[in-house]
Design a protein around this nucleic acid. Sequence first.
DNA 1: AATGAATGAGGGTTCATTCAT
DNA 2: AATGAATGAACCCTCATTCAT
Lengths: 218, 218, 218, 218
Amino acid sequence: MTQDLFNSLIAAQKTKTEKQKKIIEIAIKLFADKGFANTSTAEIAKLAKVSEGTIFKHYGTKDKLLLSIILPFVKDSLPTMATEVFSEVLTEDTKTFEQFLTGFLKNRIEFFDRNKEIFRVFVKEIIYKDELKKEIAPHFIKNISLQISRVVEEFKLRGELKDKPTDQVLIYLMTVCGSFFVSRFVLFENYSISDEEVENFVHFVMDGIRNPLSEVSS
Amino acid sequence: MTQDLFNSLIAAQKTKTEKQKKIIEIAIKLFADKGFANTSTAEIAKLAKVSEGTIFKHYGTKDKLLLSIILPFVKDSLPTMATEVFSEVLTEDTKTFEQFLTGFLKNRIEFFDRNKEIFRVFVKEIIYKDELKKEIAPHFIKNISLQISRVVEEFKLRGELKDKPTDQVLIYLMTVCGSFFVSRFVLFENYSISDEEVENFVHFVMDGIRNPLSEVSS
Amino acid sequence: MTQDLFNSLIAAQKTKTEKQKKIIEIAIKLFADKGFANTSTAEIAKLAKVSEGTIFKHYGTKDKLLLSIILPFVKDSLPTMATEVFSEVLTEDTKTFEQFLTGFLKNRIEFFDRNKEIFRVFVKEIIYKDELKKEIAPHFIKNISLQISRVVEEFKLRGELKDKPTDQVLIYLMTVCGSFFVSRFVLFENYSISDEEVENFVHFVMDGIRNPLSEVSS
Amino acid sequence: MTQDLFNSLIAAQKTKTEKQKKIIEIAIKLFADKGFANTSTAEIAKLAKVSEGTIFKHYGTKDKLLLSIILPFVKDSLPTMATEVFSEVLTEDTKTFEQFLTGFLKNRIEFFDRNKEIFRVFVKEIIYKDELKKEIAPHFIKNISLQISRVVEEFKLRGELKDKPTDQVLIYLMTVCGSFFVSRFVLFENYSISDEEVENFVHFVMDGIRNPLSEVSS
DNA sequence: AATGAATGAGGGTTCATTCAT
DNA sequence: AATGAATGAACCCTCATTCAT
């Protein structure tokens, strides 16, 4: 079982005070809810029942506070997670790419569901902070896409997937899955995803929307 | 030819002064670039070569300035556009859904390309402003999805599309296309989309990534 | 007559508001009294009966406020003054260096007396701000010492002054006069200097403290 | 040989811990460099490798920390020093006031050189702290001037010095020597004073800048 | 219609100081 | 004796907004 990212984050800085934990907890909540720029340190302090000074004692800057939320999420945990994901999802029992994709999505849904708020913070801020967009996002994408591309190639060999350039397949998968997560977790905030929905989604990704009996099929 | 949205916006409030136009122009640029919360009215005033007073004389509030950018984009222009789009894209010559989808994407790409910055403002702010998310987005979505669903049903009847619930197909299409636009126009800012890329994309949407010769095909 | 430096400073930035004048006036007073670091912008605002925002609207930064007090004092006014001083003090009637020195000191005393507080600010801050010490002080010193050295050389030629290297004489004069001003205006704040004191001082500078009849005289 | 003031200061409070010594050492350095108001206790603590608590445990207040640096310098050490100075400098070999003054300056130069930083702190803070200016400076001045005035009077009797009021001579000497030390040790920080410079300086103090052969001599 | 000086609430941040351990 | 987490007042500064001109 993948360990809880949230806890790993909380534990990142050794011997974190109760107050520090509370600050991070509240900050995540507020950043996720109202966005970084619209959240004041005063508000965080108040809700965390901490003086404003304490926040700055520990995190130095509002920006660093944000980073100390996002960085562990991306740098430490995600890669680790990624490996685990594939070892969990890609077992001998995984006979088809369809199985893999379904497993992958369900695994990530469960993961993002558990870390829903940090994910929201991450998505919302990546739009604004160039340092995030230009340094961290690629790091993040490369790591994931590398893993997936191996799976794609494996199943291309096995003949289940079309013999299209792996790049193209990958971009399509990333676009489609990324959007799946973002729309479900960030846009429609309190939306819970059913197994059925996942399966429908996977079906479309695998076979498209065209009627295979249609003579116009390419 | 679809009229330029930007101009329609500019013209919305009749007899707009040169100063007003300049304010809107600069505001769009800055909001798109740095986000609403990170842009100060002082900066807008300075770049628009206008006094701060003038901005507030015309728009009353920074929030109202934002709305006076986004609302025309959504309320006035998009629906009009929508109709035009379909009348342009869905002619007698449109023999297949694939043709339609390709035409639709190309048309929208050209449109968003022309209104790239307002689109960026819109996407960035819809995440934060509940009034946008809860009132305008649905308005927007309903309008578009209504039109598309008619097309989908038409081509289901003609047998080109699978006989899946229209809702499901629609959600898939919206997710996939939305993501296509957002990732290309908002995330990767200076990205230009080739015809080839569109065609590859359409291909995957239509037929998925599975090798049709694979015996596991459902 | 030398124009009032204070007024020239006040007039430096054309069309200064009443509030701006008041800010500068109060800031000079407080900086002179308690020092720059110990004066808060809030206090300046309060005493100047102005909102804190106004201060920053006009001067941008507390540091720039300080500079906008000191720079005009040093850069614009002092050089001008310097020329005037010498043209006033060094007339055909100036028969001796002693006369010159007495005139110079009295002129400067009157000047510093009128600009006592800015002088205090200047002296107090030059100790801390490296930019002042390294850029402005030399500018200041060079300007003055150049003028004085010419006078010294003139009177060396006339035989009134010893045939010592001009540098040495200059350094002594600057040290001694600088100290005279600083001790009287900065250290003992409300001290007024009598003509008699000036004359005694000049006497010592000219002839030293040794009894000329003493046979040990070098 | 005069004992090192620094050590005497360090030893003042008996059984000073290593940490206490380190605190004082760093505080002197920082106060001398950046001034009292611009130095934070946090910085002292960090550089002294001590917790902030420790500083306040020992010194109660940042102000008291300053005093515990300056007071020993003025109250304990200077008077002692003073006596020593005079007993060292004013021996039977001291035939002339010129000799005495040269000896005195060299002795003080050596002393201030060794305690350069405390001297800097003292000079910088005496400008701001009224308690220093009004209580300690006079104490300091009285002590020194008392001693010097005795020497001056002695040499007036011996006929080497002019028969001017001792007060006047004293003020001149204090002004001139004070300035000599302050300009060399506080203003030009890393300046080392040559014997030659001292002798030139003494020469001017003794005999002034006027050419004795000049008929205008008073 | 347009200006720009002025505002004051609030923002992020610093800092001397306290106190439980 | 020493720590360092915590405090909260004060600090410098920003900003949307107002208003007299």
